[in-house]
Nucleic acid binder design. Structure first.
Lengths: 205, 205, 205, 205
DNA sequence: GATGAATGAGGGTTCATTCAT
DNA sequence: AATGAATGAACCCTCATTCAT
């Protein structure tokens, strides 16, 4: 009767979005399929027209959202040309993404990681690609001679991502926001670019 | 005093240790209390003489194991006197701890983090103390003038921990071990101490 | 008149025939309406234009197929004039019908019988008529003096039918076919006509 | 508190007996596990301590009850020494068993047969043994020369059983009881022993 | 008439927790 | 204290049926 009451065609999307909210609030295992259905304003059974089972909701949610994120991040770092600048942009963009999509961030950080164990294999291609944006920047910088050649890109990408991730977890899970995002992004990029050691005193004249 | 007192203390430990194995294998939500009981060789009901409920097993497990880790790590970094050296030791010791206690590491990384949401509040005093070992080193270094004064210890501790954590997750969840732990620890400490930028050319002349 | 009228009549039949296949394969309760729809190449909803509900498909299937069988069997036994011969023909024709319509036979034997309990009352008029073909033969034979007058036709019809039915169930459900149908039909008629006792020795002169 | 309220030790039996009632009333597929639990006065979950699943209840019910029946019937026919007498006793005992265990009989006739298709293979060893009691009598009679040698025991057993079974189904499913059981047993044995044909007139001297 | 997406009640099964012994 | 049989609430998923198109 109402134009969009049934047969809307956007059910898949609505279910995913409802799942983001519900999983973020309760965690995957404490979320009920019927709660997702209610949040998406569809019947319980409708969920199973679009997803194979509860696990599948989480997997598809992750894949679809991650694809969008990957896309955005790729564009973002390509706005810069300098590798060091790219790294800074990555850090800032990552923290902003987390801030703008807190529920999603929480799910990816916690739920997907949790179940990645059951998907057996930490490497999720999308997630690997995301990390590889970082190692790509490193290799580019090494080729240009601006990054030390002995840096191992495969170690760096994890360290850099881990630093950002832990920082953002702090934001996502706590409500307090002592540090500004911009400031934190600069600071973290700073650690990795310049290190924390005080610069050697300029040798006396 | 006699046989019984020994066994009682024994059971608490046995249950915790069984839980470590079981939670690591299946994840918290896919683990059954009866499976822990079986692994600990006690009756299902016995578990409830020592723990309030299933959640309580995870919490106590975390707290007790974390206390031991905290203890070890404090000793470890105090073997060095230089702040930079302490940071290196922290990195190496952390990765070694993970390697030597993979099951526990997996639980702390994944399960505790998962349910930390329900404990509602990311700050778990033990975990905070662990992070504060890092910020303590920074403050000490800043006082001595070896670390830049503008470094925010509260940001640094998360970044440094996150870098190590992500690296170790890679080890725990994958079986591959491309990088040696010692090497990785050095490399990560290196990022944070020296940064990745190539040193400026010494000015000619 | 044109295309439509042909198709309509067609659908009812197609659904019944699809149901025969599906019910025979999975049993009534394990068959899904949607599977019947798929097999009949109609939409799920279309089934409800022709049948009230799933039960109704089974009932109508049974009634329609049974009417055809009744018709055939009546013709078949009337080809003989002797009651004993009619009984033999009934046996042979019954087993042949089962052989030629195995799926249908399986449904009638198993599913209809199952749900006959819910139709509450074993007497289904069509089925009663089928049995009454047998008692009719007996009465005819008794009138002619070829069958013993003390035979109770109402008992005989069930015994004779039951014997054939059990024999054919063996064929339908097993794949093995040790005995030829013709042979079995003769043998069973033989039991009922002559009994199994060895004929008394002709009294010595 | 009450002596038999919990831990009775007869739960397995109580569940089987409850299942007999419930399956007989509603049929297997329309019976709810919770209804069986209620009838057995146990919790739903308790059923799963004794049975693997709903199917398993039916299978075990059948196997256990059938074993008892087999036992009784073997004793019964061994009370006679003459093969013809054994056959008569089988018929009478079978009909009496059905009468005394109507609910069980209904389940065996309808539900087990129904699902025998899914247990895939009509031969259930217990049921085969039951049938083989009949063929055993035939072979014994043939050895003694009282039954015709050309009778095929494998056909006879099914025919005889089928006749009794169909007769008893009539009793079980209808409430009417036109014929006495004793009378019907005699009559059916009579069909198979003597046939229905009128004896030839004694040839006039 | 025909379609098939949507519905939502229903039920088998699991498993944390209890409690009589 | 220790046991483990028993409990029963909870939940995922199925599928007969409906109804807007």
């Amino acid at each position: 009767m109402k134009k969009d009451s049934r047969r809307s065609g956007d059910k898949h999307r609505r279910i995913i979005q409802a799942a983001v909210k519900v999983f973020a609030k309760n965690g995957f295992y404490n979320s009920k399929v019927s709660e997702i259905a209610r949040a998406a304003k569809v019947a319980d059974g409708t969920i199973y027209l679009y997803f194979q089972n509860k696990d599948d909701i989480l997997i598809r949610l992750f894949e679809e959202e991650m694809a969008a994120i990957l896309q955005k991040m790729t564009e973002e770092i390509n706005r810069a040309s300098e590798p060091a600048e790219k790294l800074k942009r990555f850090a800032l963009a990552h923290l902003k993404l987390v801030e703008e999509n807190q529920e999603l961030a929480e799910i990816i950080q916690v739920e997907v990681r949790q179940s990645s164990k059951f998907m057996k294999e930490y490497d999720n291609p999308q997630f690997q690609e995301y990390l590889n944006l970082i190692s790509g920047i490193i290799r580019e910088g090494q080729a240009q001679g601006v990054f030390r050649p002995e840096i191992e890109p495969g170690v760096f990408k994890r360290a850099f991502f881990g630093a950002l991730d832990e920082m953002s977890r702090y934001w996502v899970l706590s409500l307090a926001r002592k540090y500004s995002i911009t400031r934190a992004a600069e600071e973290i990029s700073g650690f990795f670019l310049d290190g924390v050691l005080s610069p050697p005193k300029a040798p006396a004249e």
